[in-house]
Write a protein that binds this DNA or RNA. Sequence first.
DNA 1: AAACTGGTTTGATATATGTCAAAAAGCGTG
DNA 2: CACGCTTTTTGACATATATCAAACCAGTTT
Lengths: 263, 263
Amino acid sequence: MTKPAMSVALSPDADDATGETSGQITRRKPHASAACSSCNLAELCLPADLTTEEMHQLDELSTLKRSFSRSDYLYRSGDKFRSLFAIHSGSFKTQILHEDGREQVTGFQMAGEIIGLDAISTDIHACEAVALENSVVCELPFNKLEALSRDIPKLQRHLHKIMSREIVRDQGIMLLLGSMRAEERLAAFLLNHSQRFAARGLSATQFQLRMSRQEIGSYLGLKLETVSRAFSHFQNERLINVKVRTIEIINLAGLQACLNNSR
Amino acid sequence: MTKPAMSVALSPDADDATGETSGQITRRKPHASAACSSCNLAELCLPADLTTEEMHQLDELSTLKRSFSRSDYLYRSGDKFRSLFAIHSGSFKTQILHEDGREQVTGFQMAGEIIGLDAISTDIHACEAVALENSVVCELPFNKLEALSRDIPKLQRHLHKIMSREIVRDQGIMLLLGSMRAEERLAAFLLNHSQRFAARGLSATQFQLRMSRQEIGSYLGLKLETVSRAFSHFQNERLINVKVRTIEIINLAGLQACLNNSR
DNA sequence: AAACTGGTTTGATATATGTCAAAAAGCGTG
DNA sequence: CACGCTTTTTGACATATATCAAACCAGTTT
């Protein structure tokens, strides 16, 4: 149970010499299949009650898939903004860089989530997105998306909801960073991942983290040693079993209780 | 203080006995004046190059103004979402409440800024907005705004930019909370306010803060004493003069330098 | 003016988390 | 399988910030 379902890389002949940027490109035959099913756009396609015509239009939107290997950049800070990306499979981290070298992981994104919303504001990507494992994304050209959402109010509303959800998520992290102690933060992190795995039909209690202690620490505003100690402590408390990146939640309620002990 | 969540929705002539909810309502004669100038929608109206017809449509959108006194709620966590609000004058704070009583200030908003974006995602306000002083807001019914933005692509794009900007702002705060020490946080806070005052034609170096040390602390993830000490320290360093809520920045470059000293 | 009130400043002390360092465990590669 | 490289764990110690407490101050009420 190491790597969860990981569809194959699709394109034979794209150069991947540096293993660095770009990712491999695949152009999907439009209409080959329904947009949502083929692209797994859990979030984007939620407006469930579209007409078939509308479905087709949506289908045309996302004809490009690109695949990435661990530590490839999906985009970098400063890149020109053209598209949002829907993660088809795999996972990414996003991070912002401060001049003085500091960096802050702002999120971990998994299949079905939309990435790149921060760039709309300036037409320049404000953060960078890095693959945590082999991953495939659907590219969604933003001006096409905007045009389409003018024609399909349900899509428009959906897009707004996605953006708003990101705002709510970020504010949740502000709460976490601003008022939780180390172990509460880690508990919140684990529970959040548990839910998200569950929402994808995977186990809520057993999963593989794809990021390092360092990256978790950056996300949670902690040093990696503190993260490691918190993991060990949860293990001693018999709340979880942790073997490096393999997590098993033994006492879910216990973890949740952790969160409600205010300082 | 703080009555915990829940209260009436906002009806026109609601009683204001407690000085608590609602705010007073003014219905503007549509067309009485140009939307942007009358409403001061710095952010919303930026799409500068609209036709007069489009301007008129925008004008119709925001016919409702409401005024609030210090510590009045603009909306509360759990309220049904109907409208965004453009702050016409004055200022607000937004905060989220955690079950266990913890609360986290997520932002301070001033004239020209849009408030309420977080509620789009669920149709329920996720946080609450409280006036920091006497303030006036323009109510922007969201479904009208959506409808209009289908007709006016520039408005659509603008709305997207506003939402995206909020995401970028929140991520900046994540960086602050996740990787800055107390004095850096306060420096960032002061510089941010300085810029925002300047952008409104006010002095960048002398201003009045409208929030308490406690509120600043909540926003910055610090205790009020720590905030107070940081102020005192800046004063001793001759970076600022501070007399309670009256701030004068003496050495702006010095404050900025503060920010670039990584840990 | 005196008394109150809520916010602010400042000091002494406690504590959570950071820092530094070394050992242990994983993991890919020759 | 041994080797080297990276990540993780654990320990000892340092420090930034929180906590507790008291004094101070400004504005408001009596």
